[in-house]
């Protein structure tokens, strides 16, 4: 209870400080350069030169400290030893490219990068196309979208329960093994199954991201002019042909956006692997690998190097995003 009060208090304080800054700084500016005085015109001009930076100040400072500085600092760290004191040149990179854990992480990450965005977009597209055609589609959408609200760790618990395994002679309480046994198979420890366990982990992220893909693609599908669909009906196309040849080509742009958004997410994914296997049984990924070196290996140099590899993988998407944004502006 006491902590709740502290929380409420600090919340009020934080928000208040923020509001006070914006109000106070603008007020100050108006006092220094009054708009109603002998030099009104000059004052307004001067105030207008300064005011944008009052608005932007906190954002620019925070972005710099929390995102720009870390990128530069990571580059510096990657050239230094475990505590960041001695300069080691490219040793960390040499170590990294020779390390088995890194090779495994890269292989798995590439697998994730191919499978998860593809599967999520695919299922999302199917779900969007189907739910748009039925009366209770909105309810269905809402339910498919729901996992989006669940934390990765919560989702991991949910799926670990599904993958649960018991000895062959007792009843299975994990749904997947229960089905396998009912079909006459032998129960498996799914998350310890080499190579395939990666896919069982990916299922979790696909399960979460399909709803996101569906919502966006559904909006895009609804944005397609109805007449083009009717024209295709008159041209004799069947529903599948209409979907593949008329609708999908018209929403390629949106599909690309969904795909890249999920790709970025996949690169950062860490919670699922940490919770399900902690990188054991050949499921290591870059984000968890980095976490390992940071907290268990306590080697900031190596961890920073791994982080830079993740960064390098998103740079192409970053450039593409900036280009797209500038095209709009």
């Amino acid at each position: 209870m006491e902590q709740l009060l502290v929380a409420l208090g600090s919340m009020a304080l934080g928000v208040g400080a923020c509001a006070l800054y914006f109000w106070g700084s603008n007020r100050l500016l108006d006092l220094v350069f009054p708009a109603r005085s002998a030099h009104a015109a000059a004052n307004i001009r001067r105030a207008n030169l300064i005011r944008p930076w009052l608005f932007l100040g906190p954002a620019v400072i925070i972005l710099t400290v929390y995102l720009v500085y870390p990128v530069l600092n990571s580059i510096w760290l990657s050239l230094h030893g475990r505590t960041g004191e001695e300069f080691v040149g490219l040793d960390n990179y040499v170590w990294l490219f020779g390390d088995d854990g890194f090779r495994e992480s890269i292989r798995n990450n590439l697998l994730w990068l191919v499978v998860v965005p593809a599967a999520s977009t695919f299922f999302g597209l199917i779900a969007a196309a189907l739910t748009d055609r039925i009366a209770w589609g909105n309810i269905a959408k809402s339910l498919i979208f729901m996992p989006m609200a669940i934390s990765f760790i919560g989702a991991s618990v949910i799926w670990k329960f599904i993958y649960d395994v018991r000895a062959a002679d007792v009843e299975q309480i994990g749904l997947l093994n229960a089905i396998v046994v009912a079909l006459g198979g032998a129960p498996q420890a799914w998350i310890a199954l080499p190579f395939w366990n990666n896919f069982f982990l990916m299922v979790i992220l696909i399960w979460i991201q399909t709803g996101f893909a569906m919502v966006i693609l559904s909006a895009a599908l609804r944005g397609i002019p109805e007449e083009t669909v009717e024209a295709a009906v008159l041209d004799g196309a069947n529903p599948l042909q209409i979907f593949l040849k008329i609708k999908v080509p018209q929403i390629w742009g949106t599909i690309a956006v969904v795909w890249t958004t999920i790709t970025i997410l996949v690169l950062k994914v860490f919670d699922i692997v940490l919770a399900m296997t902690n990188g054991q049984w050949g499921t290591q990924v870059l984000a968890n690998f980095m976490f390992d070196w940071m907290f268990r290996g306590l080697d900031f140099g190596r961890a920073a190097t791994i982080a830079l590899v993740i960064m390098a993988l998103v740079v192409p998407i970053m450039i593409w995003n900036i280009r797209e944004a500038q095209k709009d502006a």
């Binding site: 002019p225 007449e227 083009t228 009717e230 024209a231 008159l234 041209d235």
Partner: peptide, 16 residues
């Protein structure tokens, strides 16, 4: 529609 032997021109052109 496709088997009725008709063709339609739409107000919004409806070009693909």
């Amino acid at each position: 529609p496709a088997q009725r032997g008709i063709a339609m021109v739409f107000q919004t052109y409806a070009l693909y």
